[in-house]
Computed example of a mutant assay.
Amino acid sequence: MSTGASTNTGGSGKSALVIREFVSVEGGGGNARDEADAIRFRLVSYNILAQVYVKSSLFPHSPSPCLRWKARSQVILTLLKDLGADFYSLQEVDEFDSFYKTSIEDLGYSSIYVQRSGQKRDGCGIFYKKNCAELLLEETIEYNDLVPSLHDEAYLSSDKQNAPLTNRNNGDSSKQDLSEKFSILSVKSSPENRGDPNDPRVRLKRDCVGIMAAFKLKHPFHHVVILANTHLYWDPELADVKLVQAKYLLARLAQFKTLVTDRFECTPSLILTGDFNSTPGDKVCP
């Protein structure tokens, strides 16, 4: 299903929010019994644009009052309320503690959230109706885990280009193994080239994150659903970084699905949402 929103000025010159209706993706040839037994819920994935990125120079055609947080926050909240989804998968959430958490809780939702690494204030959040689903398990994804460690510098040499990094650090073995698998070395790391975009410690460190969670849908389904939400790096000049992030995400999701399957003795469904900064035909979404 898909949905969206737009503004329409009409003849009055006043902007009015237009809420598009959900478009069903059902009716793919199943029989009536299959449709009656189908698991139904509403899910919205939405990059809501972090307020820190809202600048008049980037939106010259938008009236200044519309760009201010006081106005934007209420419009966003009204939109989410009107959509009436069971799950919201939101990207670029930068006012989680001060606004979204409590405001959406007042609408009957619980939430989980991961903020971007480094100095970035925004992150990814999943909001779910408390009377619709129960949170069973959650994990965060830090794409900076792909960055080769400074402690491994001694193990790098110019004759081992494009070889996976050997991680000697302690920590989560599964995440460590995946980080080793996807860390691609193109040049020798040294203090002199730490600003070089070809240095994997520079190229892969983009402070992007993701979050994945297992939910048990409540009456009448009692089915487990895994929902993942992420925001991949944006720069088309670094398409390889975005692809590595996507591969790491899928590998972590596969591990998470196995964990959920074994721990809760179920066969979970899996839904991946997010802002992938990609278009059809890109390597991320061919």
Rank of each mutant, 00 (worst) to 15 (best):
K55V: 01
Y143P: 13
S2T: 12
V25Q: 04
Y128N: 01
E139K: 07
I104T: 11
S117A: 15
S89I: 06
S157Q: 12
P236R: 00
Y46L: 06
S98L: 11
I126C: 03
F22T: 05
R201W: 01
D82A: 15
E180C: 02
P286H: 06
A16L: 10
A154N: 06
G274K: 02
T78P: 11
R116K: 12
Q245A: 00
G195I: 06
S186M: 04
F256D: 06
R20M: 06
L137W: 09
T102L: 13
V244S: 12
V44L: 13
C208Q: 11
E138C: 14
E105V: 09
S269F: 06
L58S: 15
T7S: 09
R201A: 01
N131H: 13
E142G: 08
K81Y: 14
Q176L: 14
I112F: 07
T267I: 08
F182I: 00
L49K: 11
F41M: 11
Q176N: 09
L232C: 00
T273K: 02
L17K: 09
D86Q: 03
N144D: 15
E192P: 07
R72V: 03
P197Q: 02
A133W: 02
A32N: 14
T140A: 13
C208L: 09
K175Q: 07
V187L: 01
V224F: 07
E153L: 10
K283P: 08
S73E: 15
S73D: 12
Y100L: 15
I271E: 07
C208I: 02
T140Y: 10
G195M: 05
D196M: 02
G171T: 05
G118R: 04
E35I: 11
F215G: 03
S174D: 13
Q176E: 04
S98C: 02
